[in-house]
Amino acid sequence: MKFKHFSNKLTSVLVWIWTMAITGVAWADVPKEEGWGMPTDASLDGHRVDWLINITNVFITILFVIMVIWIVWAVLAHNEKHTADYDHGDSKHHVMVALSISAFIFLVVDGNLFYNAAKDLTQAFWNFEKAEAAANHVKIEVQGRQWIWEARYEGPDGKFNTQDDAVTTNDIRVPVNAPIIIQVTSPDVIHAISFPNFRVKVDAVPGSVNQLWLQATQTGQFEISCGQHCGQAHYKMAGRLTVMEEADFKEWVAQKSRDSKQIYDENAQAANWGWTWRKY
């Protein structure tokens, strides 16, 4: 059987040109000024995630481009007019080359990921000691349930699940430049409290309490989203995170605490969902 290579290649090339043209139109159509990148980073440590994702994007782009050039070169230069080498590639030399390249990629790309992730986790994302050590840290208990976020602040008595807790719905407010430790659970199905502008999320799991912490570096309003499929209205289980000046925040919590105290009802079990702050 004879292969009609020329027309095969022509088909392929035409398809690619056509694709590129449409991509160009699509690209032009999407409003770039609103940005395609990650949402604004409003956090102390989010830049670590951004940097690691972006540097890895650079690495993988390089790898991918090398791979593509290699393939295209081979297909063009070593086509059927070229006489193939008789080479099983299993000599010691060949094996060493293959292993070395793999080891090199591993050390650079994966090694960088592992090293920085381990560093970022111990220094920041999992470093609750650091967060707790800060005098101005704030603790919040959150219960995600179908399909709202309920939040609870300890109030003047410094204890959770008491009548002076400040309780809110879909409205979490925090002071700027202070570590915020959030413990979450759920009474029904699994949700995940996610802060896109802070690059962190954690699951709200029935029967257990998980925690995360974050620190805002700018005031403003941000969205809280639900990161786990939790049923019909999962798509609009949005909350609002407001970052305020410390003084404003203190005033707001105090007010909320007074409000919540007024409507406190010992017997309203569902409303008193808080728990004693967990120590890990």
């Binding site: 392929s12 070593h78 059927e80 080498d85």
Partner: peptide
Amino acid sequence: HTMWKGSIRL
């Protein structure tokens, strides 16, 4: 490596 220096039939 297999493709390199082969005689590729597309």
